[in-house]
Amino acid sequence: MGINLAKGQRIDLTKTNPGLTKVIIGLGWDTNHYHGGHDFDLDASAFLTDANSRVIEDSDFIFYNNLVHSSGSVEHTGDNRTGEGEGDDEQIKINFSKVPTYVHRIAITVTIHDAEARNQNFGQVSNAFVRVVDADSGREVLRFDLGEDFSVETAVVICELYRHNGDWKFNAVGSGFAGGLAALCRNFGLEV
C-alpha cells in the first residue's frame, strides 16, 4: 500500500523510489445514482507542458483521440465510456526516461464528456481517485482521493508530475474548472 496524499501535498517520486522510471497513473470514479437520461462519460487526459505550464504543440495533449505521445513517453490506454466496475477506470502510462527535455510538467486531468448538454458536473461524481503504480513491480506508490469538494465543475486537474533538480515529483492538485475540456485546453495554451 502506497502513501495517501491530501490536496496540495507534494512528494518525491523518483528520488525516494530509486529506479522508478515507468509508472501507471490509474484514475477511478463513481457516479452518484440519479437518472438524468444520460450515462456519464469521464475522460482522462495528460497535458505535457513547458516550465510556464503551456503546451508547446498540439501533440503534447494526450487524450482519447491522441493516445500516444510522439516520444513514446506518455500513453493513454483507452477510453472507458461508462466508469463501470472496480479499480482504475482509465490509465495513463508514463516512461520518465523518454519524456522530452522541454517538458517540465505532466498535468493529469479528468473531464466530463458533453457535460453541459447532459447537465452533468463533478458534484455528481464520488470516490474519485488517482494512484501512481510502479509499472515494473505493480506496487502502488501513492494515492490521492479527491473527496467531494466539487459542485458545478466539469473538469478537474487531478495532479501534476513535474521535474525538480533532475527528479520527478507528484503534486496532488484537485483543482476544478467550469467549461469542461475547452476551458482546460485554453488554460494550458491550446487553441480550441
Rank of each mutant, 00 (worst) to 15 (best):
I92L: 14
D43S: 03
N95W: 02
D58S: 03
Q120I: 05
E86K: 12
Y102C: 03
G36I: 10
A44Q: 02
A51K: 14
V74K: 11
I108R: 09
V103T: 14
E75Y: 10
K98C: 13
W29S: 10
N66Q: 01
I106C: 13
D88E: 06
G36N: 14
W29T: 05
D114T: 04
S70K: 13
Q120D: 08
N119D: 11
H104T: 13
A46D: 06
V103E: 15
D39V: 02
D58H: 01
A115N: 07
H104M: 14
T49W: 01
N32A: 12
W29V: 07
E116H: 12
E75A: 15
N80H: 03
G28F: 05
I112N: 05
V103I: 15
V74H: 10
E75S: 13
G28T: 00
N121Q: 10
G85L: 11
K98D: 15
H35E: 13
R54M: 10
R105K: 14
D60L: 03
A117V: 13
R105W: 09
V110T: 07
S70L: 02
T77G: 03
N119M: 09
F96W: 07
F96S: 15
G28L: 08
A46Q: 00
E116K: 14
R118Q: 06
N66L: 02
S53R: 13
N52K: 08
A44S: 08
S59T: 15
T77Y: 10
G28H: 06
D43L: 01
G72L: 05
P100G: 00
Q91P: 09
V99L: 10
R118D: 09
K98P: 12
R105L: 09
D50F: 00
F61M: 07
H33V: 01
G78K: 08
I94C: 13
G72W: 10
H69W: 12
D89N: 09
Q120T: 04
H33S: 09
H76Y: 15
